Each structure stands twice: as C-alpha cells, then as structure tokens.
Amino acid sequence: EFSMMFKHFDKDKSGRLNHQEFKSCLRSLGYDLPMVEEGEPDPEFEAILDTVDPNRDGHVSLQEYMAFMISRE
C-alpha cells in the first residue's frame, strides 16, 4: 500500500519524492500538516524531514519513505 502511494505521488517517476510531493503524500495519508506559504517556516514538516531525509538532499527515496512509514505504524 505504501509503495503504491509513493508511486502515485512520484509525478516525474524519478524513484524519489521531492519535499512538496512528500508533503502531499503525507496529507493524503491523513497527516494534519498546516498550510504554509512558499518559503515560510514549517516546523512540523521540518521535524518529519529530520527523520525521513536526514541528509537533506531534497528528496525522499522509496527506501527512506518506507522506513518512515513502518516506524509510524
């Protein structure tokens, strides 16, 4: 189920989600993330990124995504 969600939000089929795609994916899974303006701080989402994209390369791989989802179950 999680990998299907990942593929759905991987719009460019790159095998990874940019942070915006990842945020959309989390919202569709029921995460209550506040709407913030582009460039505004988003501490809740930043905290999630610290876990799922610790190297802050700007992308979430399928492996990082799956590890995050399994840790939340």
Score class of each variant (00 low, 15 high):
Phe45Leu: 07
Arg27Val: 12
Glu37Arg: 13
Gly30Asp: 08
Asn18Ala: 07
Gln63Gly: 11
His19Gln: 02
Arg27Trp: 08
Ser28Thr: 09
His19Glu: 02
Phe2Gln: 14
Val60Asn: 00
Lys13Asn: 09
Lys23Thr: 00
Gln63Met: 08
Glu73Leu: 07
Lys11Pro: 04
Asp32Leu: 13
Asp12Gln: 09
Arg72Asn: 12
Gln63Thr: 10
Thr51Glu: 15
Met35Thr: 13
Asp50Leu: 02
Leu17Ser: 02
Glu1Gly: 05
Glu38Asn: 13
Asp50Lys: 07
His19Trp: 09
Lys11Leu: 03
Tyr31Val: 14
Asp32Tyr: 11
Asn18Ser: 13
Met35Ala: 14
Phe22Val: 04
Glu38Phe: 09
His19Gly: 00
His59Lys: 10
Glu46Met: 06
Tyr65Asp: 02
Cys25Gln: 04
Asn18Pro: 05
Pro34Asn: 10
Phe6Leu: 07
Glu40Tyr: 10
Glu73Trp: 00
Ala47Trp: 07
Tyr31Lys: 05
Leu29Ser: 09
Arg27Asp: 06
Pro43Met: 09
Val52Glu: 00
Asp57Arg: 14
Val52Gly: 01
Glu44Met: 10
Arg56Ile: 01
Leu17Thr: 00
Phe45Thr: 03
Gly39Val: 05
Asp42Ala: 04
Asp12Pro: 03
Arg56Pro: 00
Tyr31Cys: 09
Val52Trp: 01
Asp10Val: 15
Gly30Pro: 02
Leu17Gly: 02
Met35Asn: 15
Asp42Lys: 01
Glu21Lys: 05
Pro43Trp: 07
Ser28Tyr: 10
Asp50Ala: 06
Asn18Ile: 03
Arg27Cys: 09
Lys13Gln: 15
Leu26Cys: 03
Pro34Thr: 09
Pro41Trp: 10
Phe68Thr: 04
Asp57Ser: 15
Phe22Trp: 02
Leu62Gly: 03
Gln63Asn: 10
Gly30His: 06
Leu17Phe: 02
Gly58Ser: 01
Lys23Glu: 01
Glu1Trp: 10
Glu40Ala: 13
Lys13Met: 04
Ala47Pro: 06
Asp50Trp: 01
Glu73Arg: 11
Asp12His: 05
Leu29Gly: 05
Arg56Lys: 06
Ser14Ala: 10
Cys25Trp: 03
Pro54Arg: 09
Gly58Met: 02
Gly30Ser: 05
Glu64Gln: 14
Arg16Met: 10
Leu33Ile: 13
Arg56Gln: 04
Pro34Gly: 09
Val52Asp: 01
Met5Ile: 06
Asp32Pro: 13
Leu26Gln: 00
